[in-house]
Design a protein around this nucleic acid. Structure first.
Length: 227
DNA sequence: CGCCAGGGCCATA
DNA sequence: TATGGCCATGGC
C-alpha cells in the first residue's frame, strides 16, 4: 500500500539522520513562556540573533514582567532579531494572552489539539509554523512543524519541487498521516531536518549537484523499491 | 555590495 | 485562495 511505502521512507530518513547526527536537544528553554517568546522572535531570523534577544530579556521572561516593560525597552531588547516594532507588539499580545489563559501546557489540557491550534492561530503574530512550534515544544502536542528546511529536504529527497510551494497543512499531513502521533518523535524529526540543512544542505537549490545527501537519497529510493 | 535567515500580516483581485 | 509588498537586523 502507498501509505506503507511512505511510512517506510520517512522512517528511513529519520533513522539515517539520527544515526548520523544523534539527538538534537532541540529548543531547550528555561520555561514555556521563554519558548513561546522565542517562537515569535525566530520568525524569518537566525536563532543566534534570537538568543541575543532572549538574553536581553532575562529577568523579564514572564507575562507580567513583559507587560510591565515599556514598549521602547522591549523593542531595544529584541532589536537583534529584526522586525522589532512588529515583534514587540506580538510579544505584548502574547503576554496578555498568557496572563489571561495561562502559560504552561497544564493550563490548556481541556482543549483538543485542534482547538488549541485554532486558539493560538487566532493570536496576532502567530501563524501556522509559530503555532505548531508552540504546540509541539511547549504544549506537548503531536503536530508536525513545516518550515523552509522541511520543504527543502522533502524536495531534495523526493525530487518534487512541489514541496516548496505546497500548502502548509498538506506538507504536515505527509508526515502525520503515516507516522505515529508521537510528540518526542516529531520534535526530534524536525530538529534533525534543520540540523541536516544547517550542516550540509545549505543551498536553496533542491537539485544541487554533488549534494552530500545523495547517499541518503539513494537509501530512501532503495526503501521505496521494496514495494 | 547583495543575499538571506527556523514567517506573518495585510491589501488586492 | 493566491500572490505581492512590507517589516529590519546581522552574518557572510
Amino acid at each position: 500500500m502507498r501509505m506503507q511505502k511512505r511510512k517506510a521512507q520517512l522512517e528511513t530518513i529519520y533513522n539515517l539522520l539520527f544515526a548520523a547526527f544523534g539527538p538534537q536537544h532541540w529548543w531547550e528553554a528555561d520555561s514555556a513562556f521563554e519558548m513561546e517568546v522565542g517562537a515569535i522572535l525566530t520568525q524569518n531570523t537566525t536563532w543566534a540573533a534570537v538568543e541575543k534577544s532572549i538574553a536581553n530579556l532575562k529577568g523579564n521572561l514572564s507575562p507580567d514582567s513583559l507587560l510591565a516593560l515599556p514598549q521602547e525597552k522591549l523593542e531595544e531588547a529584541i532589536r537583534p532579531s529584526g522586525y522589532f516594532h512588529q515583534k514587540a507588539k506580538y510579544l505584548k499580545a502574547l503576554a496578555a494572552f498568557c496572563k489571561e489563559n495561562g502559560t504552561n501546557k497544564a493550563d490548556y489540557e481541556a482543549y483538543s489539539t485542534e482547538e488549541l491550534r485554532r486558539l493560538w492561530l487566532a493570536q496576532k503574530g502567530v501563524g501556522k509554523e509559530t503555532a505548531d512550534s508552540i504546540l509541539l515544544y511547549a504544549m506537548d502536542r503531536p503536530v508536525f512543524i513545516v518550515d523552509a528546511y522541511t520543504r527543502r529536504v522533502m524536495s531534495r529527497m523526493f525530487g518534487e519541487e512541489a514541496y516548496l510551494s505546497m500548502d502548509y497543512d498538506a506538507v504536515a499531513n505527509v508526515f502525520t498521516e503515516v507516522l505515529p502521533k508521537d510528540t518526542a518523535y516529531y520534535g526530534e524529526y524536525h530538529g534533525l531536518l534543520v540540523r541536516l540543512c544547517k550542516d550540509i544542505c545549505l543551498k536553496k537549490n533542491p537539485n544541487c549537484e554533488n549534494c552530500p545527501l545523495t547517499d541518503l537519497c539513494k537509501a530512501v529510493d532503495k526503501t521505496a523499491k521494496k514495494d
